[in-house]
């Protein structure tokens, strides 16, 4: 058995978010981190490794510097990394991204007892779409919003969170599970892991590596293969210093409630 974990490097939005004058995100000025939910997915994989001795492969699509993130994950305990990188892949929306990542997972090799893990969603796009879309492209079952994962042989049992409770869902490998932060507390890199992380392999898959897969076509990857396009992006009007409402009585509160209603907040 092996566990393939899809991870993404994202701008750290816990600091100041920098926006260009044209309304796009100024990524260059922001530090990058491993997407938080993806770290929970890696931890889930490493827990399975602790219990079963399975192999853990971390895969990311991104520019060459994303290799550094894969090395960090290897220092946490992953066995090897795959960096999917190429200018043909740039500008991909979630549909095109899932085509490419599914092709990469096929290249790594998805065996009958393997599991694919993803974070629920990335903090830069917040779409939560790529995991489900990879599962569709691989034609394997998916279980999203996992707060607990148990694996016994080829049987996978997941506690799947809903807004008002949860479901327990069983399926068979190979399958894809998306992970949420309630699942676990990600471990730190170990000293030995940091020492060894450059000794373990990180393969680079470019367009040529994947081009023979039927999922990889000019009109299914990159900007040209993305069904969705950004039509406009913009910043909301600046938050003023705020407004002090007159008084502190019934009318004041009614005015506040009316404002919140107008803004669809209540």
């Amino acid at each position: 058995m092996k566990v393939i974990v899809c991870v993404k490097q994202v701008p750290d939005t816990s600091g100041k978010v920098a926006v260009n004058p044209d309304g796009t995100l100024n990524r260059a000025s922001m530090a990058t981190i491993i997407n938080p939910d993806d770290k929970n997915a890696v931890e889930a994989a490493l827990t399975l490794k602790d219990n079963t001795g399975c192999e853990v492969v971390v895969v990311t699509m991104g520019p060459p510097p994303a290799e550094g993130m894969l090395r960090e994950l290897i220092a946490m305990g992953a066995d090897r990394g795959v960096l999917v990188s190429g200018r043909e892949f740039g500008g991909s929306d979630t549909f095109a991204t899932s085509q490419i990542l599914a092709a990469a997972i096929k290249k790594i090799g998805l065996e009958a007892d393997d599991i694919v893990l993803c974070g629920r969603q990335a903090i830069d796009g917040d779409t939560a779409q790529v995991g489900s879309q990879i599962a569709e492209k691989l034609d394997i079952p998916q279980i999203s919003y996992a707060a607990d994962i148990k694996v016994e042989g080829t049987k996978v049992t997941v506690k799947r969170m809903l807004e008002d409770g949860h479901m327990t869902i069983e399926t068979q490998t190979p399958c894809l599970v998306t992970c949420i932060k309630e699942l676990n507390e990600p471990r730190y890199m170990s000293v030995g892991g940091i020492f060894d992380c450059y000794k373990k392999p990180v393969d680079v898959y470019d367009y040529n590596t994947l081009k023979d897969d039927p999922l990889i076509e000019v009109d299914t990857i990159g900007l040209k293969g993305s069904p969705t396009n950004i039509f406009k992006s913009f910043t909301p009007p600046q938050k003023g210093v705020g407004r002090m409402l007159e008084g502190a009585d019934k009318n004041t509160c009614a005015e506040l409630a009316a404002e919140l209603l107008k803004k669809h907040i209540i």
Binding site: D93, T94, F95, S98, G125, D126, T127, A128, Q129, V130, G131, S132, Q133, A135, E136, K137, Q142, S144, Y145, M161, L162, E163, S226, P227, T228
Partner: peptide, 22 residues
């Protein structure tokens, strides 16, 4: 919802069309 955001992407991928989240 947690269900819609699980189901929508799967359908969009199968239908080969775009899906805009949330």
């Amino acid at each position: 919802t947690n269900i819609g955001r699980d189901l929508g992407p799967r359908c969009a991928a199968r239908l080969h069309t775009g899906l805009t989240a949330d």
